[in-house]
């Protein structure tokens, strides 16, 4: 597996209400992620998981510290540069799928490629590959309302991968899924991680996800309390 640094965060802090009662959502965090990692970010509610994901994903700006992704300090980018950076470097999977309801599964995934101005031929090839990988080739033309929650989340994963990002950030990806769908999604994510060396960083409370992660980072009160590989490292089924 080719190991190279994807995420390098130094002294990252995010403070809410700095002028009144400061709340450190993320407090002086150092984080280093290499290509091909499959990492879970865990911790109790309010520990700063989502804030840290938002900072690494360039959705929010830290009050101090630097976040270097693939050699680029994203804290120095303008808003417009950040949008462009996200489009080409980061894939997002959200807790509640967030597919565009009026578009088909294929169109939802294709949208990212439209934003990247890929040709129709390239789009079709990429969509074909992605739907094979998420095992939904027969649902290309289904609308989100015609898909189960698990299928929708798989389409969301395909959308996150559509731009061939450096890594995928997933915020509680299995929170709204039943056990079977959650395992199915995890299997696909692990397969993509192992076979295509795609880096995943996801926040979760879900023990099923934590058990399959190769690395588990625990956040407490905005600080990294532990950073370990779980005892029982899962493999692709």
């Amino acid at each position: 597996m080719n190991r190279s640094t994807v995420i390098d965060a130094h002294n990252v802090s995010k403070v809410y209400n700095p002028d009144t009662i400061p709340v450190y959502a993320v407090n002086n965090v150092h984080l280093h992620l290499e290509r091909g990692e499959f990492t879970a970010l865990v911790g109790p509610s309010g520990s700063g998981k989502t804030t840290l994901l938002n900072l690494i994903g360039g959705l929010d700006r830290p009050d101090s510290g630097e976040i270097i992704i693939n050699g680029v300090d994203i804290t120095k980018l303008s808003d417009n540069q950040l949008i462009d950076f996200r489009l080409h470097n980061i894939g997002f999977v959200f807790q509640s799928f967030n597919l565009i309801p009026v578009l088909t599964a294929k169109e939802n995934v294709e949208m990212i490629m439209h934003l990247q101005r890929l040709s129709k031929g390239d789009r079709d090839t990429r969509v074909g590959q992605l739907f094979d990988e998420i095992q939904l080739s027969d649902k290309l033309n289904s609308r989100p309302s015609e898909l189960s929650g698990g299928q929708q989340q798989r389409v969301a994963v395909a959308r996150a991968l559509a731009s061939k990002p450096q890594f995928v950030l997933a915020d509680e990806p299995t929170a709204n899924l039943d056990t079977k769908s959650a395992f199915n999604l995890l299997d696909i994510m692990l397969k993509l991680n192992q076979e295509e060396n795609i880096t995943f960083l996801f926040s979760t409370h879900d023990q099923r996800v934590i058990e399959r992660a190769r690395r588990v980072i625990t956040l407490v009160d905005g600080k990294i309390a532990s950073d370990t590989a779980p005892v029982n490292v899962a493999t692709t089924t």
Partner: peptide, 10 residues
């Protein structure tokens, strides 16, 4: 917000 997050320019 999601569209902005995934890279749609304003």
């Amino acid at each position: 917000g999601m569209l902005l997050a995934i890279g749609m320019k304003k």
